[in-house]
Amino acid sequence: MVRVRKSLWVLSIVVFVFSLLSFSACRRGVVKDDELDDFATQEEMREEAMKRLDEEGITEEELEAARRKVAELSAQEGMNLANVYFDFDDFSLSQEAKAVLAQNAAWLINNPQREVIIEGHCDERGTGEYNIALGERRATSTKRYLSVLGVNKAQLSTISFGEERPANTGHNESAWAQNRRAEFVIQ
């Protein structure tokens, strides 16, 4: 009986603390919601970027392996910058894309004086405006991955052309596959 009463006591404290916590969480939520015209701070943006990397499904081990690969490739001669390809309405990096980016990272690390523009492109399906936003995502996820591989961010800038600059002007699956890409343009 005493035991029960004690656990009830603990429970009620827990509930009380919890309600306090959730109340303050709510309050914070409300306050944040009220800051309508505020823009994200640098810190928030950095947090967001980390979260995104997480959402893009890149693990620590993967990253380590990729960095080792970059170091290995950097020692080789005659590296090139290659395009990265994406699935329809998607901007996540496939294993294939990450392998290509490891090479690209090696090239960029070997050529620290060179600046490149990463162009995000889409296939012709879908809506122009939505595709510009999607192309932007493709370019920035590519840039973000290169920078976690150790490429100096100052070497990288991004632009999206949406569906406006197809690599292949055909209207079939193979043309579309070639058009859903991040392309590297050396300045």
Binding site: F39, E48, E136, T140, R144
Partner: peptide, 21 residues
Amino acid sequence: SQDSGNSDIYIINLKGEKIKR
């Protein structure tokens, strides 16, 4: 998108100044 890659909707005035996100 403000370089973050993330497209969001804003209201600006006719001079281009952000009024509201």
